[in-house]
Design a protein around this nucleic acid. Structure first.
Lengths: 337, 337
DNA sequence: TTGAAAGCGCTACCAG
DNA sequence: CTGGTAGCGCTTTCAA
């Protein structure tokens, strides 16, 4: 493997000049730049990351702490991971995986060994054991999700409250005065991710503002629970019923339950569910969807991280960004009753 | 951040002694070891990865090249990624993500910059553009998937042929003499991953050996295609029909199609589908399942990689390992017709 | 069994 | 605008 010394020699310049050509931290004459670039090309030189990290005290690597929760949609987590990695590359950084089974100790390890310059935490819970560690780490940390106490931390998440409001507003605009909201499945509730509360709060806020009624009903991944909730919803509704089912898994079960009751989606009943890239495309149904824009959340998280890394300002940062959510209408979804 | 020099000073020994205590590459007296370990503890010393990589020419990082194919099960890819990362940690290595949108150039980059010591490639296709690069890289590469020409490469994958055989044998044992195999969805076929052929070949081999008939029918993610295939299957079968649906998405559509025809799974019709950790648990159905054991494949891939890294033998390696697949029976799935 | 010292390949400072 | 050079923090050889 050629080194920058080899390049310098081949180009007839000093090693430092090679370094400056690469970093652009110093004006270089067109002539020497050409010479150096030619030598780099010719030798297929690539700078050694370890040496660079040692000298510059920057690894250009971001640690990504991923959860593994079998019962939760791993596919959507993969979307985050994938977009985060691509975006990091756009900012000339790489992503190191830190699995959650190392716990909070994993954070200290990768930062302590200076394998990476900063951390992105996914699936942050309301009371997250990793937060005290994160706060003490002295490197930038960006959270995806909002903990109960976000002080001293940089947080970013989808605007679930806005999503909840959107849903209720749309259904109200379609003439519904009673709207049934099916909770997330217990596995999600148990994780104490507070986006659930934020979403539900959003529905209540909109309901109050518009003078409509919102029924909160239990969610579950078994048909019995959903069937029960649908019974209650129908009992509480006069006229055409309306459902909001933010949980992707539940949306599917709900759809089947309604079908088996002879209710046609969009015609006899209005339903808004969350965007399911795969299922929605594979099995098109007349449904409006909430898009929580995971790709956008991921992109912004990386962007913020890279800004913090470039700014290099060592004081603790604090900010809270909510990415606007979007409702996509499918034709014939929300026809007036 | 304390350095090994600080530790040496605190313990009253040379810097090299600290290094040897950590690496164990040299006998150390119990007394000095204690002193050094105490100092490490007391200063909460952690070795600097960059410096270590520079001096030892080993990063203890493995590059993982991940695909992003929206129409394919991202959830199952996440399972690979997750297990690979955990297993790497057990061997004291870390995982760096390399996204596929960098293409083959990404491989050269991470290896050229010496960010990682080896590469694991996921979703290897029959004719994969990354292979020539992989072969030329001079670092260990482990493929998950078997390309058309595996020469000079280390490959590992689930034994799809065995899976195909298992399925046919089980159905034949249950008394079926005609068995319908539904192909994977076009999105998978288009990727030219040859596990499809291997699986289908397995079914043919078993069919020939047992003297039963196998019907190969087109797969798809729309109900019409599946419905067509079921029509053909029923037309070609006398007695109780039997299906093999290795594609997870199709399994779901097939199930519904059969239900809508009034056929009860396990009673009027036998079906074997692939294991779907989420769906199977959420919506239990009387079905035997093929388990391709992604976690086991992942674990072995990492293990092999770490062996190659430790052995450090620089010659090109070549091997092909197939991980046995498993069929799980659900009660009342395969009752004789 | 231990210490001293020479790099590993790069960045960044100090001179010119 | 460019060259020389002193480290960055570790591993490893050579001596003791």
């Amino acid at each position: 493997m050629p080194t920058s010394k080899d390049v310098a020699q081949a180009a007839g310049v000093a090693q430092s000049t090679v370094s400056y050509v690469l970093s652009g931290k110093r004006p270089i004459s067109e002539k020497t730049r050409k010479k150096v670039e030619a030598a780099i090309e010719q030798l297929t030189y690539q700078p050694n990351a370890g040496a660079r990290a040692l000298a510059s005290r920057k690894t250009r690597v971001i640690g990504l702490v991923i959860p593994f929760i079998p019962e939760l949609e791993m596919g959507s987590i993969m979307e985050f991971v994938s977009v985060i990695a691509s975006t990091a590359r756009q900012f000339d950084h790489d992503i190191l995986l830190v699995t959650d089974d190392e716990g909070a100790a994993g954070l200290s390890r990768v930062v302590g060994q200076q394998i990476c310059d900063g951390l992105i935490l996914m699936q942050v819970e309301d009371e997250d054991e990793r937060l005290p560690v994160a706060r003490s780490l002295n490197v930038p940390v960006v959270l995806i999700g909002i903990p109960r106490d976000p002080s001293g931390l940089v947080c970013i998440d989808a605007d679930f409250e806005m999503a909840g409001e959107h849903c209720v507003r749309d259904l109200a605009a379609a003439g519904h005065s009673v709207i049934s909201v099916i909770d997330w499945q217990p596995a999600v509730m148990d994780r104490h991710v507070n986006y659930v509360d934020r979403f539900l709060h959003g529905t209540d806020v909109a309901a109050k503002a518009l003078g409509v009624t919102v029924l909160h009903l239990p969610g579950g991944t078994d048909r019995a629970t959903i069937s029960d909730s649908v019974d209650k919803a129908l009992a509480g509704t006069t006229g055409k019923p309306a459902f909001i089912a933010p949980d992707r898994t539940i949306q599917d079960i709900l759809r089947r339950d309604l079908s088996s009751r002879g209710l046609t989606l969009g015609l006899d009943v209005s339903v808004i569910g969350s965007a399911s890239p795969t299922l929605a495309e594979l099995q098109p149904i007349p449904l409006s969807t909430i898009d929580l824009r995971p790709a956008e959340v991921s992109r912004r998280a990386v962007k913020i991280m890279c800004q913090l890394l470039d700014a290099d300002s060592h004081g603790p940062h604090e900010s809270l960004e909510l990415v606007p959510t979007v409702i996509t209408h499918r034709s014939s979804t929300l026809r007036p009753q």
